[in-house]
Design a protein around this nucleic acid. Sequence first.
DNA 1: GGATTGT
DNA 2: ACAATCCAACGCCTC
DNA 3: GAGGCG
Length: 911
Amino acid sequence: MAKLSEYSAKRRFEATPEPAPAEPAHRGGPLLFVVQQHAARRLHYDFRIECDGVLFSWAVPKGPSLDPADKRMAVFVENHPYDYASFEGVIPPKQYGAGEVIVWDCGVYSPDEDGVWFHDREQAQQRVREGLVGGKLSLQLRGLKLKGSFALVRTKQDEKSWLLIKHKDRFISAADVTQQDRSVLSGVAVKDMRSFPVHRMPASQLVPVGDATAMPAKLEPMQAELGDAPFQDAGWMWEPKLDGYRVLAFVDGDKVQLRSRRGLELANTFPRLAEELRQQAGGGTMILDGEIVALGADGKPSFNALQNRFQLKSPVDIATADRNVPTLFFAFDLLYFAGLDLRARPYHERRRYLAQCLMPSALVQLVHADEDGESLHAAALASGFEGVIGKRKDSRYEAGKRSPAWLKVKPTHSADLVIGGYTKGKGSRGALGSLLIGYWEGDGLRYASHVGSGFNDRALQEVLARLEPLHTRSCPFSSKPEVNAPVTWVKPELVAEVDFQEWTDDGSLRAPVFQRLRDDIDPKTVRREVPSHSGAATKKRRSARAAPPSPRGDVVIDEVVAALDGTTKNAFELAVGTHRIRLSNLDRVYWPANEALQQPALTKRDLLRYLAQVSPLMLPHIADRPLTMIRMPDGITGQRFFQKHWEQARPDFVESVTVFSESKDEHHNYLLCNNLPTLLWLAQSGTLEFHVWHSRAKVDADAKSKSTDYATSLESLEASVLNCPDYVVFDIDPYIYSGKEAPGAEPELNTIAFEKGKEIAFALRELLLGMKLEPIVKTSGKTGLHVFVPIRRTIDFDTARHVSELVSRHLMRQRPREITMEWSVPKRSGKIFMDHNMNVRGKTLNVAYSPRGEPGAPVSMPLTWEELASAHPLDFRMTSVIKRLTRTGDRWRDALTRKQDLDRALKGGKA
DNA sequence: GGATTGT
DNA sequence: ACAATCCAACGCCTC
DNA sequence: GAGGCG
Ligand SMILES: [Mn+2]
Ligand SMILES: [Mn+2]
């Protein structure tokens, strides 16, 4: 292994998250390159190539360019360990290279002066070594952003100065490739790294790595099962389904085979494709899964054009056809590359390897893939594709099998509708842009939609000819449709069959595509079919998948979720068991979409759904505790206000407790959120955060006081059960600023601060364990942590506060530079604030599982201590936690029952 | 978001 | 009829 | 006692 001593000398591995040098591991397969973007003192890019077990590195201040005229300065810097290639994160202040790092691009590379050597690591490395010594490298990059041949040349003037220059090939471009500024691993821009949770993947997963095995001589393609609708699920990706000819392409040196599903050999039928694919492998081996597609006259994939193409046998005819009817290979999977069998790798990795190793050209292209199944489906239908295929990210390639890990989704809905008019379009569609279609409802013809997709020239002609004699001056629809093109009305006598995705709630069609005229149907009989098997059914299936049955199989929760998702109505009356709640403004955006945090816009409906689903875990922690509502009826960007008391009318399922107050009216009503309808009713009134007392208005065995007189006097309140907390609270608040805060603002979430907070929480835990006390922990949802010691309710808040203070001060003496208990905010700066004064009657904290009115929609998440080690607040969001909770259940399920005796602990050990 | 108060 | 306004709190800390 | 703090 080449040396890493300089790398180690510059860094302190206790203080930086960067990887320490590791023992050299045996690696086979192509060599890796990576480009990291690094927001250090000065923003730059680090270009690194693997050779002899380490990464030879150059710092490129302006980053790579695809323009051969640009010579980019590249300063040769110290070797980095191989594992550095997947490093993304934040290097803390004062450490070498302090700042944020993302993986801007990664892929495989090979010297390319005398052919490429992806398939022969030793040959490749030999040429790289020579190039490094000689000061001249020519490399073919197969990355996700960078493709093609690049030169690295050492300048005469300086040993360390090199130039990075794009060679002329088909990948040159005047476009600025650094405009694509997201990480290829996490999708995060470097400036957002500070607030984003990082989860390292091993560098060896970035590109195909492994030992060579013989290339399978024959394989059959993996098949998809039939699915009923696309859905959003972070575990799935979606690709358009191409209307072509499924083929596995085997390349071995000069030999190319194109195998159809039935084993037919097609390389001779598509010689140009075969030649292109041969070049893709660069003399090595490769198996691609894909689809041969012929483009019709309109430039869209056409199965007919492909059928015609198959008829040709003579080389002359084929050559002519290749000029006139382009035939393309669309690749969507990579099963084997440069000697490595990739079939057992998960789909999302194969997908990355494919995007890296494939060098797109006019004839060989990469199939688009996307996480947003619903949008892709709509877009795919609109552009003339058959539908979409969903693929489970963690699925292996099961050759020859029909697997549920791949789902084929085609539009299943079809309707016959009456044509009442048509619009003019543009260009070749000047005469007919779209048809206005509708159905009879009572005596009127109700407008449903306009449909402009699905016409070929012949259909266009035919429909126009049939409409001509039906022209009329008056609009046949009962209410005149709004369209932004000139309309010609026709008598409602023609019926069109239309495929579409679903009925929208306002009675329109989503993604309609014209199929044919239906002369066999009497236009007077056209009614809208009940949408039981269309819109509503689609929704139901979707939610059934996205939301597994509630943890306890609670019927009421399932009904609530079904009601919320079963309609697009903005307001309706929700049944919760026997209770009714008027819901309004369900589509109001509470959390606006935040691209940097990869959060879609979340509405009040999303909030209600989340609360219903989480309620079995959340209610035990919120029940019987006087509640402070943080209300944001206009969403998190609008006005927000606290509300502690509720003197107005309220539904009868909402419980409350009256508490003495020294201020003038002597007592106040606090709400108790003791059941699901209350939780939902609170959300309806704009409550986004639920903050609760640490004591409960309920007597049971662990409470020493049995008094429930909270209202008559201060003395009675202090003698009541509300005066004894359920836990000693350690509120851990990092005051380590990200630097982006407005003057005077609270510190924002940032990784450095949270990591330090975690460290303090672990130290606190050690201290408490030494006192025979077992603490539990949760994220607050914002920047801090809540560490609680559940105790029997025998001591009052005052005692609990003293315990918290004693322990915190002890910890602060051990780590004075890291912990502060200062009252003045400026003096807390750079430290972790431990606020023992939270242990006071009437103080509140955001309850477990409560969302926060913060970007990303994080929630307060109870964790095991093991989980805390790798946790980040934004790992737990309204959008993601239900899935986790069905697996883990409530990590705090014992918090209220496994209580500890503080008196004994205090006598036993001393802090 | 909703009740209450002010114009 | 419609717009404006309210919707927290108190005990603890430090000076 | 005043004013900051959560
Ligand atoms: Mn750097
Ligand atoms: Mn806190």
